[in-house]
């Protein structure tokens, strides 16, 4: 079980152990185990095809597992019908009824979860209000913009007030304004709900998740807080210099500054330099590069990202 330091006293709400999903001979999810605490935002980060969506589909009971166990609040998924009320899924695609208005969709889905008639209207209006769709309550879903549809998608996952909300790529395809709204809304949900989100966007995982599990090829590579994960890559910042050509190994050794601990890597004409106090060193470094007859086309100074963690773990970036 992956439990990090400092979490021992928290209440485990979701517990996944040795979960396996095979499609023929292909292991989409390969014996993964993790725990999610009550009220936590837990991120599954990985490239497309890493097994994130398959994992959450099993978690919701939409996909049967080949092996392993999923427990939510102590009960195995699919073993009790009552579990359906515990989970709300916001799928990657916008899934709604084009010819129903926003309020009709929410009231319909609420009734599918046996919500009482008098609560149904209040709950639906409340969700529309919280997600900035109150003025669109009587508008057909087909007439909504992409961002609004995404918000409606989220509202539909929450209509029965589940204690676990599973969000599959919640910010995918959103404009910046909607992204901020959704992000703040998800954070506000984490007060009394447990949230699992999948993403291949490191920024999204970094900003939103309390803990992140990095997945690749159906396996979990590492689980920790974004801060700890980023620290695991190394101290200091990263300077990215886009050059006119790729420097040779010999040329790279001349760039090193004596007395400074620097890690230098190159990839596709980009020079990555990791070190502390890089801001002061930029003029010296560009001068050294210029002396090699290489032109510096752009300079970016940044801190560690989860992508760096992923690259360190897998040797490839998230988009590959």
């Amino acid at each position: 079980m992956h439990l990090n330091k400092g979490h021992e006293n928290k209440e485990v709400y979701i517990h996944v152990s040795n979960l396996v999903k095979k499609f023929g001979n292909f292991n989409a999810v390969d014996r993964i185990s993790f725990s999610v605490f009550k009220g936590e935002i837990f991120g599954l980060l990985g490239p497309n095809g890493a097994g994130k969506t398959t994992t959450i589909r099993m978690l919701c009971g939409l996909l049967s597992k080949t092996d392993g166990d999923i427990k939510i609040n102590g009960s195995s998924v699919r073993s009790e019908k009552a579990l359906t009320n515990l989970i709300g899924l916001c799928p990657q695609e916008n899934i709604h009824w084009d010819k129903l208005t926003c309020i009709e969709q929410l009231q319909f889905m609420g009734s599918m979860y046996n919500l009482k008639e008098d609560n149904l209207s209040d709950r639906s209006n409340e969700l529309l209000q919280l997600l900035g769709l109150a003025d669109k309550k009587n508008v057909l879903a087909s007439k909504l913009s992409g961002g609004m549809k995404r918000r409606l998608n989220l509202a539909l996952a929450l209509v029965h007030d589940p204690s676990v909300v599973v969000l599959d790529e919640p910010e995918a395809g959103l404009d910046p304004q909607s992204r901020v709204l959704i992000r703040n809304f998800i954070k506000s949900l984490a007060v009394d709900k447990t949230i699992i989100l999948t993403t291949h966007n490191m920024d999204e995982a970094d900003r939103m998740a309390d803990r992140v599990a990095i997945m690749d090829h159906g396996k979990i590579l590492l689980i920790d807080t974004p801060e700890n994960l980023k620290k695991s890559v190394g101290e200091g910042d990263i300077l990215e210099l886009r050059l006119s050509r790729q420097p040779t190994e010999k040329e790279i050794s001349t760039i090193q500054i004596p007395g400074k601990s620097m890690k230098i890597k190159t990839d596709n004409n980009i020079l990555f330099i990791r070190s502390a106090g890089l801001t002061d060193l930029i003029p010296v470094l560009t001068e050294k590069i210029s002396a090699l007859g290489i032109e510096t086309e752009s300079i970016t100074l940044r801190g560690n990202t989860l992508e760096d963690v992923f690259i360190q773990l897998t040797g490839k970036n998230l988009r590959q």
Binding site: L62, T84, L89, H96, M112, L156
Partner: peptide
């Protein structure tokens, strides 16, 4: 939308 109905 059958996914939503199945989930319910």
């Amino acid at each position: 939308t059958i996914i939503r109905l199945k989930l319910s």
